[in-house]
Simulated scan of single mutants.
Amino acid sequence: MTAGRQVGIHRSGTFSLGGKVVHRLGFGAMHLADPDIWGPPVDRDNSVRVARRAVELGIDFIDTADAYGFGVTEEIRREALHPYPDHLLIATKAGRTQTRPREWVSLSRPEYLRQQCEYSLRRLRVDRIDLFRLHRVDPEVPFDDQIGELKAPQPSRRLR
């Protein structure tokens, strides 16, 4: 770990989110999937190493989504980092999917958001997600219904 790389993360400043203080410089995990973000990466071991290295370099906020590789980036994050360090913010989002490679559509019906939250809990192997966000506003669903579902308590789960 070089001092120069650490300085960049620490110079980004911090903010409080989900009860944790995290650096503004985070890591977007979308490209841990294949190049079209459609499935698993060609070199899964490398994606696992990249996720681990990000945390080694001081990253404490990794953003991913259920739609990235159909959940594969959440699985890679779990494989690389579970059990998660206390300082790492667990963040993911739902409300968007692909109908074919690189063709994204909003999908934020409340029952879909709840289902994707359940899937994310399982893939990340947590009983609580620190930050669960709406990926995109779905123009076909009343905004209050989308946000209302995100504000509703997360399902209670026991880890298996």
Score class of each variant (00 low, 15 high):
V48N: 12
V55H: 05
D130V: 15
L17E: 08
D145I: 08
I9C: 09
G58H: 13
Q6F: 04
V42H: 07
H135D: 05
D86P: 12
G71V: 11
A33T: 06
P153T: 07
G28H: 06
I147C: 02
T2P: 12
L57C: 06
R160V: 14
I76S: 03
S120A: 06
R158A: 07
G19L: 11
A51E: 04
I59F: 14
L81Q: 10
S120I: 08
H10V: 11
S47T: 15
E79Q: 09
T99C: 05
T97N: 03
E140M: 09
E103K: 14
E75P: 01
P85M: 14
D145G: 08
L113R: 04
R136S: 11
Q146C: 07
H23G: 02
E103T: 13
T64M: 03
S106I: 06
F61K: 05
G13I: 00
T73F: 02
A80W: 04
A80P: 02
D130A: 08
L88S: 03
I76P: 09
R114P: 00
A80L: 04
A3W: 03
R158Y: 01
F143W: 14
Q116F: 10
V105E: 08
D130C: 06
L150Q: 00
I129M: 00
R77S: 09
T99Q: 08
L107T: 07
T64V: 11
P110M: 01
Y112Q: 08
H23Q: 09
F143A: 03
R11C: 10
V48P: 10
I62G: 09
M1P: 11
G69P: 08
G148C: 07
R136T: 01
L25I: 00
R136D: 03
L159T: 12
R157M: 11
P85K: 04
D144Q: 13
V105G: 02
V141S: 10
K93V: 07
P142Q: 03
G71Q: 13
N46I: 13
L81A: 10
P142E: 04
I37D: 00
P101S: 12
D144N: 12
F15K: 15
K151F: 07
E111C: 04
L124G: 00
L88E: 00
V141Q: 11
E111Q: 13
L88D: 05
V72P: 04
F15A: 09
R157E: 07
G95W: 12
P35Y: 14
A80H: 05
R44M: 13
L17N: 01
T64D: 00
R44W: 12
A152W: 15
A67K: 06
C117V: 07
T14I: 00
T92K: 01
T92I: 06
R77G: 03
V126M: 02
S16M: 03
L131Y: 13
Q146F: 09
G19Q: 06
L81I: 10
A152G: 09
W38F: 14
R96V: 08
T99N: 01
R100K: 14
E140A: 15
E74I: 12
D34Q: 00
D63V: 10
R78K: 11
Q146L: 02
T97D: 03
V48G: 00
R11L: 11
P110I: 14
V42D: 14
V55L: 02
I62M: 07
V141C: 10
T73E: 03
A3Y: 03
V7F: 07
I59K: 01
